[in-house]
Design a protein around this nucleic acid. Structure first.
Length: 355
DNA sequence: AAGTCGTGGGT
DNA sequence: TACCCAAGACT
């Protein structure tokens, strides 16, 4: 049961949201929503997938490009896998793109191209977990589901001065968030809490003077807002190394391969190469993907992934027309764009390209 | 149920 | 420089 205090808090937050909502390409703002405009569930879903662990600034151009190229879920379901992966290149967490296509095809084939207006049904779809199911249910369909993302966790930890470290604190914070979720305007409420976390209740230097919940905030009262939420310390990243082979044919074609569906950069285009092993182990010796005179570049490509650093030794070669690769396939210049590569592979290209 | 899975910007 | 963080999901 939601008490009067909770109802008041949500009301104060909605008043704040009515005047301070961020204008976002995928959002129906509070005024339009009050006038009866409904969000497009496809746009809500697409934006929520893109926004998983990704900043608004990074998502904007990708969202625009995707909706321009694939205006409906049926359009996306009919797209080629390689086109979608290339369009996602640079955004990261590529399993999202693979699941995006799977989900679009399930919605098109099993739901008549209509996203189910049901939290449990949404949760069954590929790439949609607890947060995203609640976000789509509330934002697209005004179902009173509770979103718990990084913003909401931080806001709840401070509002209730909760010192239990994440992720152990999640159930507690979810309980707090659920109590605040109103039956009226649950979609605007969900977006309002996240906007509050993104613009006022920020990780560093929160703007408590502008916060509609300041007088109710237990951490503000205790003076602990700057140290919350607590988090369990992370492990240090090890460093790995490997070799990549960048072969250019005399007609300008590059030798590329599509990486395996699962694992790091799964399903993405990349340069053939060795496994990546811990720096304490010797550099793996793998046969080059094609017979050639290989030259090792003086500079290695450096890149940091979620859980390790990578130093990639780059070897290049210029090839005649009549030589068959043992791995990968040549991609003609008119079919190749560096923008289709994940960032590591694009870094390697930038170091190896003729200039 | 910890580990896996990207990237860019801010500090 | 090194670390943190961002509308998490999947295994």
């Amino acid at each position: 049961m939601r008490d009067n205090g909770a109802r008041t808090l949500s009301g104060e937050l909605l008043d704040w949201y009515d005047h301070n909502a961020r204008a976002l390409p995928w959002r129906v703002g509070p005024a339009a929503r009050a006038a009866g405009v409904r969000p497009d569930p496809y746009a809500v879903w697409l934006s929520e997938i893109m926004l998983q662990q990704t900043t608004v600034v990074a998502v904007k151009p990708y969202f625009e490009a995707f909706t321009r190229r694939w205006p409906t879920v049926a359009d996306l379901a009919a797209a080629e896998d390689a086109d979608v992966m290339a369009a996602w290149a640079g955004l990261g967490y590529y399993a999202r793109a693979r699941n995006l296509l799977k989900c679009a095809r399930v919605v098109a084939a099993e739901h008549g191209g209509i996203f189910p207006a049901d939290h449990a049904e949404l949760l069954k779809l590929p790439g949609i977990g607890p947060y995203t199911a609640a976000a789509i249910a509330s934002i697209a369909f005004d179902i009173p589901a509770t979103v718990l993302d990084g913003n909401v966790e931080r806001v709840m930890a401070r509002l209730h001065d909760e010192h239990t470290p994440l992720p152990a604190a999640k159930p507690i914070l979810m309980d707090h968030a659920a109590r605040l979720t109103p039956d009226e305007r649950p979609g605007d409420h969900a977006q309002a809490v996240m906007d509050l976390g993104a613009t006022i209740c920020t990780p560093k230097n929160p703007a408590c003077g502008l916060c509609p919940w300041r007088t109710a905030c237990a951490a503000w009262e205790a003076g602990t807002h700057r140290e919350l939420p607590k988090k369990t310390p992370k492990k240090a990243k090890p460093t790995r190394h490997g070799v990549a082979y960048l072969a250019r044919r005399v007609d300008g074609a590059w030798l590329l391969e599509t990486r395996p569906e699962s694992g790091l950069l799964g399903g993405m285009l990349g340069w053939p190469g060795t496994e990546w092993v811990d720096l304490t182990a010797p550099l793996p010796g793998t046969e080059p993907p094609i017979r050639a005179e290989w030259r090792t570049l003086p500079e290695e490509a450096r890149h940091t992934f979620t859980h390790f650093h990578l130093r990639l030794t780059l070897r290049t070669a210029l090839l005649p027309m009549d030589r068959e690769p043992e791995r990968g396939a040549f991609v003609l210049p008119q079919d190749f764009s560096p923008a289709d590569l994940p960032t590591l592979m694009r870094k390697a290209f930038d170091l190896a390209r003729p200039r």
